[in-house]
Design a protein around this nucleic acid. Structure first.
Length: 764
DNA sequence: CAGTGAGCGAGCTTCCGCTTGACTT
């Protein structure tokens, strides 16, 4: 027993494989990489051919000891890490760390977790591919050099704790570039003309739109006046057959996109749900760039589809992976058993599982065929044509199961079936509308659409998409938030009952929710990197170095040659720039205050972005923090002058002043040493004394209501908050343990609870 | 847990890709 030790990367995989292999095999997992470059200094000896200094990662020491012991007992050790660059490196590190010997070590690979695939792998072992390992070392060393030399420059020149790297800086740049496009975008208005028509004999109704955008209201008026009293009839009708193909089964990236679009999951939410499904044995591995399905999966899908929908709905397909730098070590994401149409568990688990099921099943279903009809409505007064489009499904095919969502939010109209109409048939006009529209700025990225873009550019890997976005958040480079659009005047014309009427309304145009917006510090860092390290933050940098890694992997170049070339130039620049004195200047002059004639600038301050009235040597200079959503880049002088109006003294209550301002948590009033947030949607610039007095009164009542008990002498209070009762001491809150009645707590018990929770915190 | 915007300085921060839990809310 246990003559063979098989090592894989993932414990869930180990469990499955052990079942296939029987009692002569013990299967263990390495939990990914076991060694990494030392964090002391660079972990690389740049003077001596970039010799890496590897150390066993702290959290892997226990596993390495266990694996060592198991390897000692085994006759043959089978290293079955993934078949890609990283997997090969894991194999090599295992070989080195566990002190394995060539005669009893075998390297095996398989792309799908099926018994046949694994047995086939065991029959065809090979040795570790050192060229591939070297390509990984080059990748690792390059990333370390870039990250650990660039970041300290940022600490020195901009702010401590910032970071830069090959992947995160390119991803950040995408977001910043997009924001710039949006800032530069000037919306212009146009008019769209729609009409409702009826057949003159049997009341079939049809809606049509004039193809071209009408450039101004006068042209629109002229047209509508011409339509008044015009005769309408059906023009040419065109029909064509369209074939729709299903999308390939999920990769990490496409799954993140669809779960985001369909359910609003964040990419890390999606990944943690998928991890759970994977560990429960319900789906295949969730970090993959492959759209490939195993033969077993293909025939299982066919069977399920035939069972559920009939044979004509089945069409077996194998998809090619198109994304840059794909390594295809795994299958696409699919259910392990297509017969599991539904699963038990939490609602979000179910939703993601069903999405994966549908997508994988649909990918093996027949094309849908549709008939698209385009119809024109002509008139006798001018050459403008109204177009109506309809769609009819002839055979639904995969559409029975799955329809892919789009990022484009302007998917206003569902195309319906058009009534049967013949050319030349007369139509009655019911009404015609001209509506003012505005051109839209480009969309900000969502987490998922950013991942899509990164994948297209080959930046990052399935295992790092979600963590990279988290890093950008943690550094304060970006926020996921809502942006309110611009208030715009919308005019519209209506022609109905032979009368033309005009209306004007105000609408907010271009609002976005849950999108990735850069923060000032993100813009500053990006600008600084572009200014000084253009080649590293270039979108093509990764593609360029990947080429070099491919050459190494093919055994055509030593792994450190290109690194040496790169580093000599890169490090020189790092040195010169570090020796230059001073910080990066973040200030932007936005104008002159008409009242004082002083300059107003926007810049980065110690506590964040601000506007400043008066030069730095001005003793009476004033500051105001920029509110959320306003950037140094686009703050206007009008906004700045407004910001300087705070704090305002609203007046006095019982001889004490009431102050109104905006703080870290939004607008507030300050009265008698107490801070009270303004109600939602209240405007701190117009908030009145009366409203403030009412707010103070309400707050007092709320406080009395929320109070359960006080131990004044120790400053301990038992209160009711949003999440139920809690204990408060010296501005800190403590949970009350379950099963305790808050009203009955004694001072001693409270102190005990506080001490316990403090001790727990300290431990951490 | 909210108002700030001085200056000095010790000691720390940081990368990307593989993997999971162990955390908190």
């Amino acid at each position: 027993m246990g003559e063979n030790l098989v090592i894989v990367e993932s414990p869930a995989k180990a469990k499955t494989i052990e079942k296939f292999l029987g009692k002569d095999y013990i299967v263990k997992s390495s939990f990914g990489h076991i060694r990494d470059l030392s964090k002391k200094n660079l972990g690389i000896d740049v003077e001596h051919d970039f010799e890496p200094n590897y150390v066993i990662s702290q959290d892997k020491k226990k596993i390495v000891t266990e694996l060592k012991a198991a390897a000692k007992k085994a006759k043959i050790v089978w290293i079955a890490s993934d078949e890609d660059r990283e997997g090969e490196a894991i194999a090599w590190h295992l070989y080195e760390c566990l002190g394995l010997k060539p005669e009893n070590t075998k390297r095996i690979v398989f792309h799908e977790i099926t018994k046949t695939a694994i047995l086939h792998a065991i029959d065809n072992p090979r040795t570790i591919n050192l060229d591939l390992v070297n390509a990984q070392q080059a990748r690792r060393v390059l990333d370390r050099l870039v990250g650990f030399e660039l970041s300290p420059v940022l600490w020195k020149k901009i702010k401590p704790s910032l970071s830069a790297g090959r992947v995160q800086s390119a991803a950040l740049r995408l977001i910043v570039d997009r924001e710039r496009e949006i800032i530069a975008f000037k919306p212009h208005s146009y008019y769209r003309i729609d009409g409702n028509f009826l057949t003159d004999n049997d009341n079939k109704s049809i809606k049509g739109t004039i193809d071209q955008k009408i450039k101004d209201i006068n042209t629109a008026k002229k047209l509508l006046n011409e339509f008044n009293g015009a005769e309408f009839k059906i023009g040419k009708t065109e029909t064509k057959k369209v074939v729709k193909k299903p999308a390939p089964p999920f990769t990490t990236s496409s799954m993140q996109q669809e779960a985001g679009r369909k359910f609003g999951f964040s990419v890390s939410q999606t990944m943690s749900i998928a991890q759970h499904l994977y560990e429960s044995g319900l789906i295949t591995y969730m970090r993959t760039d492959s759209t490939n399905l195993s033969k077993l999966a293909l025939s299982a899908a066919k069977e399920t589809i035939t069972d559920l929908y009939g044979e004509k709905y089945s069409k077996t397909r194998q998809y090619k992976t198109h994304s840059k730098g794909a390594q295809e070590a795994h299958e696409a994401i699919r259910p392990t058993s297509f017969a599991n149409i539904d699963i038990k568990g939490a609602a979000r688990d179910k939703r993601l599982y069903q999405l994966i099921w549908k997508r994988a099943i649909a990918s093996q279903m027949s094309d849908a065929s549709l008939e698209k009809t385009t119809l024109k409505i002509l008139n006798n007064k001018n050459n403008e044509k109204f177009t109506a489009q309809g769609e009819q499904i002839l055979f639904d095919g995969f559409l029975k199961v799955y329809i892919e969502s789009k990022d484009d939010e302007n998917n206003e109209e569902r195309k319906n079936l058009l009534p049967l109409l013949s050319e030349g048939q007369n139509m009655l006009m019911q009404e015609i509308r001209a509506q003012e529209k505005y051109t839209q700025h480009p969309y900000r990225y969502t987490e998922a659409s950013l991942v899509k873009k990164m994948e297209e550019l080959g930046i990052g890997r399935p295992s790092t998409y979600a963590p990279t976005i988290t890093t950008l958040h943690h550094r304060g480079y970006i926020v996921k938030g809502n942006r309110i659009g611009q208030k715009m005047n919308i005019s519209s014309l209506l022609l109905s009952d032979a009368k033309l009427s005009e209306k004007s309304t105000e609408e907010i145009i271009g609002s976005e929710k849950g999108k990735l917006c850069p923060e000032d510090i993100g813009i500053i860092v990006t600008d600084y990197l572009i200014e000084n390290f253009d080649s590293v933050v270039d979108y093509g940098f990764t593609a360029e170095v990947e080429e070099s890694f491919d050459t190494i992997a093919a055994g055509k170049a030593p792994w450190n040659k290109d690194i040496k070339d790169f580093y000599s130039r890169f490090h020189k620049k790092i040195e010169t720039i570090s020796n230059e004195k001073g910080h990066k200047d973040t200030s932007r002059t936005i104008g002159i205050d008409p009242k004082t004639n002083k300059t107003i600038i926007a810049r980065m301050g110690k506590f964040g972005p601000l506007v400043q009235l008066g030069e730095s040597d001005d003793k009476d200079k004033k500051f105001a923090a920029l509110p959320k959503g306003v950037l140094i880049e686009n703050v206007t002088i009008e906004q700045a002058l407004q910001f300087f109006k705070l704090p305002r003294i609203l007046g006095n209550l019982e001889d004490l002043p009431i102050k109104c301002a905006i703080g870290r948590f939004g607008p507030y009033i300050n009265y008698n040493k107490e801070f009270i947030s303004l109600p939602k949607n209240a405007d701190p610039y117009t908030f009145t004394l009366e409203e403030a007095i009412q707010l103070i009164k309400d707050n007092k009542e709320k406080k009395i209501k929320s109070k359960i008990k006080d131990f004044e002498e120790e400053d301990i209070h038992i209160l009711i908050g949003r999440y139920g009762p809690y204990i408060k001491q010296a501005k800190k809150n403590y949970k009350i343990p379950k099963g305790t009645t808050p009203e009955e707590l004694t001072l001693e018990q409270c102190q005990e609870i506080i001490e316990k929770q403090l001790a727990k915190k300290k431990k951490k």
